[in-house]
Design a protein around this nucleic acid. Structure first.
Lengths: 415, 415
DNA sequence: CTCTATTTTTTCGAGCCTCGAAAAAATACT
DNA sequence: AGTATTTTTTCGAGGCTCGAAAAAATAGAG
């Protein structure tokens, strides 16, 4: 049962709204904020004056150089970089990276590290994560107290409450409650996010025009992942991070998937599957642990040069992705798609079969209007998404506390 | 960009909250409402006093007979049946039914009619619908002015804005803007809803324990439809009613579907598909227009009696549904399922193959914990859902106007 | 250089809304 | 009849947003 709105929630919500408006617009004037929020000038004036006194916003005097308008010039409001800071931790296959970001979104410091995630012991993996965070926190240039939030992204399935990794392809270990581990170790609120969801969040910030209320981000990498935004909110499963597009069934009893089952989309479109088909190893061949980006690029080059097993492998990948997308479109209707990851660079090889497959499905009627974008490098996206995730948490939960906690089903998820 | 909250929205939202609390609880006292909404007694007292003066609520004196408690007895609040009325129109294959329902949810009058929807001209179909509504409105016992809303449900795809039928299996005609047609004809606000969505809405009202925040209603009838509730809200596509579970792809290039494509789940699990397989007509056989309920029951009886093509047909249906559900669960995680429609009565024949298939999918890990309920008769559910849909519209848009209009993404969809 | 038009921002009183505390109301128990 | 208990209403306090008016800050005209 939804809960009533109390009088004091009003100010909190509108505070959050003003902060969000500044984060979105960059340097809006009070008048612009009043327009986007449709609150009165008086209210915006009162709230922003509070926020400036509290050190959350700052006035940045002469906003535009070419302001030839008459009248009192607008005063730009911007986020005070020193209001807080957040930390992002991205854990992917054999790679760990961490960054400290100020409240305005600028990277203050970072560190990256190679490690052998597939063979590491559970404790070592956790240890590496806490150690790299600790090193950043020990940085003498950094005011530790300003770190308001840690967001950790991992490839794999996380739970809905953003506390734990349930399963991941980068390690044999399962059910690691990273968020609680970091919170206990450093006393800083932490969340654990799914990598593809963070890609979607980042895309929305990068290009709000194209990636507005409904879109799909698909990771074409060793595995196949998806981040989904529907009606302006990040879509998650009921228990887990959800959106396991790669494990929708393409062909019942089909090719062997890394997850142990058969016929998943990933078993045709993941790097290992493309590799397996290109080498003509057969659909029952055990998936290899990893294929280097260089090897995948070589495969793509070979496929472009001649009509051989490599080209056929990409065709099969396209077919699986196309039928998968078709089924997805049957459920949610067609939406713009971003293809991210190494194999997105080979999307020219994938697209023909993909489109051909989509035409055979319920989404087919709009096949031509479905547009694909490609972005070969997923790591920067994941980092950005994590950063925005952590920063909007600070916006909402720390600088406008209580505003969302009491709200009903309408807690904004992404923005 | 989300919009700020104004001061006067407060009262509107809390009014809506109180009305919703009464509709859910039946005869709650002011104190109970204060508890569920977590608003103060003073506020509830003020709001309910307003609502009583306006004739929306009534006090129903001695609520429980066995109230042996000390102290001032609670006064039950209930919806005033005369506050308004709504009309539901359900259009299904060869059948049209309409009902008038008072504000408290009781059916006041109804009418049903057989007609040949598959062969009717576009104008006749529309004409029959407006005529049956007009006959009800002309009923001398009825105060026409009290009709505040019409909700029309149809089997098929409707648009997100609840204005038009885009495509339906019950008629060859497409893109009929029923909502606008009824509004223009009678000057009463109308919406056009998808039948399976209304089933889901009704299930939630019937059994809020089981069908709470996340569940799936699947219609096993001539076609296969789905109504999906996720995180407490009815799920719809970005443009259409969405959730076209029946047209997810089960086998690329597989059996011929009624929609003209190949390999859809429906092409294995719809009545016509079960019929086709039981008669061993081959997967390319043109789907028959209709199979009577009696024929389907005979098929099920035959399948239970001996291991022949009938049993195999149900097995194939179960397999298709199982893989489809598996793919769905990969996206949204497992949730309780209600099987509705004629073939739900044959669920004993479907379930084994269905569960076997689910085990092969990403949802398989929780296979045993997934529970299925069956309900062979879909029409009463659709009617109930429509009624609740229309009534909650009146609650929100007429008796607490403006409350939702200004809200951000958090407009409650079902409750 | 002064004055005016224009635009942005702040100030101030009015009107609501919710809340807590206390009062009033209505019953069961002694 | 009096007391304890529970529900509901009343009333003043405090907060919030709004509109109107004032103040502030600039460009252009003369």
């Amino acid at each position: 049962m939804s809960v009533g709105i109390r009088h004091d929630d009003l100010r909190r919500r509108n505070r959050a709204m003003v902060i969000a408006a500044v984060r979105h617009a960059g340097q809006p004037s009070r008048t612009e904020i009043a327009a986007t929020t449709s609150l009165s000038h008086s209210t915006i004036s009162a709230i922003s004056s509070d926020l400036i006194v509290e050190g959350i916003l700052t006035e940045s005097k002469p906003s535009e150089a070419g302001s030839l308008k008459r009248g009192r010039p607008q005063v730009g409001l911007s986020l005070n970089p020193e209001a807080a800071a957040v930390m992002t931790v991205v854990l992917s296959l054999n790679f760990l990276s961490v960054a400290v970001i100020d409240y305005a979104g600028q990277v203050i410091s970072e560190e990256q590290r190679r490690l052998d995630t597939l063979t590491m012991a559970r404790e070592s993996l956790i240890g590496e994560c806490t150690a790299i965070v600790r090193r950043r926190l020990d940085d003498p240039d950094l005011d530790v107290r300003s770190i308001a939030r840690i967001a950790l992204a991992i490839q794999g399935i996380t739970d809905t409450r953003s506390r734990a990794m349930l399963w991941s392809p980068i390690t044999p270990h399962t059910d690691i409650a990273f968020a609680d581990i970091l919170e206990d170790a450093f006393g800083i609120p932490a969340t654990m996010e799914n990598d593809c969801n963070m890609m979607a969040v980042a895309l929305r910030w990068r290009d709000p025009q194209r990636y507005r209320d409904d879109f799909i981000a698909i990771l074409l990498s060793h595995g196949i992942g998806m981040g989904l935004v529907l009606k302006g909110e990040l879509f998650t499963g009921t228990h887990s991070s959800g959106g396991e597009f790669g494990h929708m069934i393409h062909r019942p009893n089909g090719a062997l998937c890394r997850c142990g089952r058969r016929g998943c989309v990933e078993a045709y479109a993941g790097n290992y599957a493309i590799w397996r088909n290109a080498r003509q190893l057969g659909e029952d061949a055990e998936p290899v642990a990893d294929v280097s980006d260089a090897d995948m690029r070589a495969l793509a080059t070979a496929a472009r040069e001649r009509d051989g097993p490599e080209r056929e492998a990409y065709r099969k990948a396209g077919e699986a992705l196309g039928y998968g997308l078709g089924s997805l479109f049957a459920l949610i209707d067609p939406a713009p798609v971003a293809m991210v990851g190494v194999s997105a660079a080979a999307f020219d090889l994938i697209e023909p079969a993909l489109r051909e497959a989509i035409v055979q499905t319920a989404g087919g009627q709009h096949s031509k209007s479905i547009s694909f974008d490609t972005e070969p490098n997923e790591l920067p996206l994941i980092r950005e998404g994590c950063a925005m995730r952590a920063l909007t948490f600070v916006d909402q939960e720390i600088f406008a506390p209580g505003a969302q906690a009491r709200s009903g089903p309408g807690g904004k998820n992404v923005a």
